[in-house]
Nucleic acid binder design. Structure first.
Length: 490
RNA sequence: CGGGGUGUAGCGCAGCCAGGCAGCGCGCUUCGUUCGGGACGAAGAGGUCGGGAGUUCGAAUCUCCCCACCCCGACCA
């Protein structure tokens, strides 16, 4: 059917690239490594934003905005943080252009060199903690629970639309607390919130856990992550929440007087998810006909397509369609009525399938005469004829059903692709096939590094709920007390 | 930064080896017939052949230089 898309089974990454472009989500821009997010892709991001924003607000967070530019000196204050980001920072060195005296065009004005270079934020901990320093003197000033929606820049070597681009959109939460306990609770609260969002809105099951020492955020004491499994068996980190301890407070000298008049460093967290989530939605649900969007995040939940011969038929279909649209909209369902006369129904069917619209209604003279509507669902590609009077309630139920169905499908796939592995041979074999590998690990960075070098698999998470279990490290044979999750990852 | 590849109409490509009117498919415009799974016919529009220099009567094609992008590695949400 969709023969303009590369088949998923032929070349998964080409299929993904084709899909992003053909479904009109985004395209490569004139700037290397940076994408243009097109209206349909941005609409999806807006749905993600709106829901997360609601969830952040419901847990007491507020939004604010900090600068894009960060003085270079701020980066040198937290050693691990510098180490982690130094290699991928864009640097602003000048503030003016001038006409090229030798000819056409403009050049950077050498007289306009900045005293101190500015870093384009790869993340905002430093500028934010420099600012918080001025906001916090007393325990009465705490907690600070701020989120910002922003763009960040990380100069990536290799980029892929949504999954890894040099500039991307995200939200970053930065909180300040009086106690360690409170900051730890915040970190856990957010990773649970992300997990809830991934499962109930994106329809993607995730594994929740902590990162190993080498995989955690630069500057964090502990990094919690949710990890999803894509259809090709590779893992995708879908969200992270960091317990930063007092690292940034010490680096930026942020102290407060507690209730006992004792001077203390502030405890902090940071957490984020990015436009990468769009990549996750694609790679978790889409098929050879195109996107399959979860109803809870689909920009268009229902599309209505008229089928008619001549203008007289169209008129009666128009009025019926608009009635149905209005009825659905009163139930909070987003509906598009596509009565463009420039494309045939078959074209539109294929187009909305490609774009992953969960439910499609087709309305023709036969339906008008018989008081029915043809309803097609994207997740199963099945059709049914529904009586006109029950369409509202049918769709209301169906959207919920589709949401659950695609989650269950992804869950089934995920569960079918978790493997308990106990020997190096099994590990090597399974890593080639993909999936999450549950294996014993001796807990050392050396072993982790060796495994990464030889298999390209990394520890995705150390699951929060993993039971203690005596075993031997799959690589070194040294004793281990629990299994961790390995996979090749995006 | 290494290795490979590609730049020709909006998109996808052929033409280059062996120099001689710049082509094909899709898309686009107009008109007509169509319309329940990507319609058909007819007529059109659309080009700095990535850029520069050279060889030649003549360069998309040969030579040299430059630029950009893509893929594969090392780095990463």
């Amino acid at each position: 059917m969709a023969d303009f898309l590369t088949k998923r089974e032929d070349n998964y990454s080409q299929w993904y690239n084709d899909l992003v472009i053909k479904a009109d989500l985004a395209e490569n821009s004139a700037v290397r490594g940076c994408m243009v997010i097109k209206p349909y892709g941005y609409a999806l991001w807006e749905k993600i934003q709106a829901q997360l924003d609601k969830m952040f607000k419901a847990t007491g967070h507020v939004n604010a905005y900090f600068p894009l530019f960060i003085p270079k000196s701020f980066f040198s204050k937290e050693a691990d943080h510098v180490e982690g980001f130094a290699k991928e920072c864009a640097v602003v060195t000048h503030y003016r252009l001038k006409n090229d005296p030798d000819g056409k065009g403009v050049i950077v004005d050498p007289d306009a060199k900045l005293e101190e270079e500015l870093i384009v934020r790869p993340t905002s901990e430093t500028i934010i903690w420099n600012t918080y320093k001025n906001w916090i003197q007393s325990y009465r000033d705490l907690p600070i629970l701020i989120n910002q929606w922003a763009n960040v820049v990380r100069w990536e070597m290799r980029t892929r639309l949504f999954l890894r681009t040099s500039e991307f959109l995200w939200q970053e939460g930065h909180t300040a607390h009086a106690t360690k306990k409170e900051a730890e609770e915040e970190t856990r609260l957010i990773i649970d919130l992300y997990s809830d969002f991934a499962q109930n809105y994106m329809g993607i099951p995730v594994l929740k856990g902590t990162k190993s020492e080498s995989e955690k955020f630069a500057g964090a004491i502990e990094t919690y992550a949710i990890e999803a499994l894509m259809q090709d068996g590779k893992a995708l980190q879908a969200g992270t929440s960091h317990f930063l301890g007092q690292n940034f407070a010490r680096a930026f000298d942020v102290q407060f007087l507690d209730k006992t008049s004792k001077l203390e460093y502030v405890w902090s967290t940071s957490w984020g998810v990015s436009t990468r989530l769009i990549g996750a939605i694609i790679m978790a649900h889409a098929d050879n006909n195109g996107l399959v969007l979860p109803p809870n995040l689909a920009p268009i939940q229902v599309v209505i397509i008229p089928i008619y011969k001549g203008n007289s038929e169209l008129e009666s279909i128009n009025s019926a369609a608009l009635e149905i649209k209005a009825e659905l909209e009163t139930k909070g369902i987003s509906v598009k009525y596509d009565n463009r006369d420039t494309h045939k129904p078959g074209y539109k069917f294929a187009e909305y399938e490609l774009k992953g619209v969960p439910v499609r209604l087709a309305l023709g003279s036969r339906d008008i005469a018989g008081g029915t509507i043809e309803l097609a669902r994207r997740d199963t590609l099945t059709k049914e004829i529904v009586p006109r009077e029950s369409i509202g309630s049918r769709i209301e139920d169906l959207l919920k059903e589709i949401q659950i169905n695609i989650f269950n499908r992804a869950l089934q796939f995920r569960d079918d692709n978790i493997y308990r592995v106990d020997t190096r041979e099994q590990f090597l074999e399974q890593v080639e096939k993909g999936g999450f590998i549950l294996a014993h690990w001796d807990g050392t960075a050396e072993t982790e590094e060796k495994i990464k070098q030889e298999t390209k698999a990394t520890i995705r998470v150390i699951p929060l709920d993993s039971p203690e279990e005596e075993g031997k490290c799959v690589w070194s044979g040294n004793p281990s007390v629990r299994r961790v999750v390995f996979a090749r990852a995006y």
